[in-house]
């Protein structure tokens, strides 16, 4: 039972927690604020926090100069495409391992996770050369394949941990109730599996959206998603904070909002159900 805590104590907790939370969040907040400043105000000394001339110019400039939406679309195609392709391959696999476990199931799962331990840089050269030779370099399709493969073990583990929580007695009850294979899948299993599949989808889109090894090494102008697009801001030194901020804000906003909605499933999903 939660014990009554004095309001004073609660007020102190609240104050300390909010200060720490705002400190952690501050770089994001600062980026968003800066994106609405002029370049001059962005580097003003002392920096202005809220009292500056708010402007949307940076956003229009970023789009006009560098085709932000093209890169945004690349990110969408690559992250959603690789996740859905991964789900199509992973669902039957996780399904079978959860419901028809054999003696090797545990080892197979462990082996799959261990492929995640393979450092990407260890296979960078061959993948780069293969992609160059078959013309996949700097294509969205090529990245969809690679990101699908690197996230496949995680997708399978997540799905497996969700499927395993569907109690066996429910399936038996359905069979006693006269459900055949088709109705069992249609009316009982699918509705029960959908929440797990949905959060796996969400979490892997986030992971793929933010992936920044293969997207940086295998893309150039054509297929660069937002990760690579933003990285291009690192080269020229100069006064571009406001535009960098606008581009950054646009790059993180969709996934940040998605992340806020998925934070409940985040822990359960990313720890494969080990922490709930």
């Amino acid at each position: 039972m939660a014990r009554a805590v004095s309001n004073q104590r609660k007020a102190i907790n609240t104050a300390v927690a909010w200060i720490i939370a705002l400190l952690i969040f501050f770089p994001i907040l600062w980026t968003i604020l800066t994106s609405f400043k002029t370049e001059a105000e962005a580097i003003a000394d002392p920096p202005s926090f809220l009292f500056f001339n708010w402007t949307l110019d940076n956003y229009t400039t970023v789009q006009a100069r560098s085709d932000y939406f093209g890169h945004f679309w690349n990110s969408v195609v690559i992250s959603v495409g690789s996740t859905i392709l991964g789900l199509i391959i992973a669902i039957p696999s996780a399904w079978a391992m959860a419901f028809v476990p054999g003696k090797q199931t545990k080892n197979v799962l462990m082996w799959m996770l261990s492929t995640k331990m393979l450092p990407p840089v260890g296979v960078l050269v061959p993948i780069y050369l293969i992609f160059r030779d078959v013309g996949l370099l700097d294509t969205r399709f090529g990245l969809v394949i690679v990101l699908m493969l690197i996230n496949l073990p995680i997708i399978i583990w997540m799905l497996y941990s969700y499927f395993r929580e569907i109690p066996g007695e429910i399936l038996e009850a359905a069979r006693m109730d006269g459900a055949g294979l088709r109705s069992e899948i249609l009316y009982v299993l699918t509705p029960m599996a959908v929440p797990g599949i949905a959060s796996t989808l969400l979490l892997n889109i986030i992971l793929a959206w933010n992936e920044a090894f293969w997207t940086l090494t295998l893309t150039a102008a054509n297929s660069a998603p937002l990760t690579a697009f933003i990285a291009s801001y690192s080269s020229p030194e100069g006064l571009f904070y406001a535009k960098l901020s606008a581009a950054s804000t646009m790059a993180i906003a969709p996934i940040l909002i998605m992340g806020w909605f998925s934070q409940k499933q985040l822990v359960r999903g990313l720890t494969f159900g080990a922490v709930k």
Binding site: P167, I170, E172, R175, M176, A179, Y187, P191
Partner: peptide, 30 residues
């Protein structure tokens, strides 16, 4: 399903995504 027997499970094994009405209706629907 064809033996004409009904079972009540230890964990009740209710379908969590269906209302009580739909749970009870399920075997008849089948």
């Amino acid at each position: 399903a064809k033996r004409g027997l009904a079972m009540v499970f230890q964990s009740y094994a209710l379908y969590p995504h269906m209302s009580v009405r739909k749970n009870i209706a399920f075997p008849m629907k089948m």
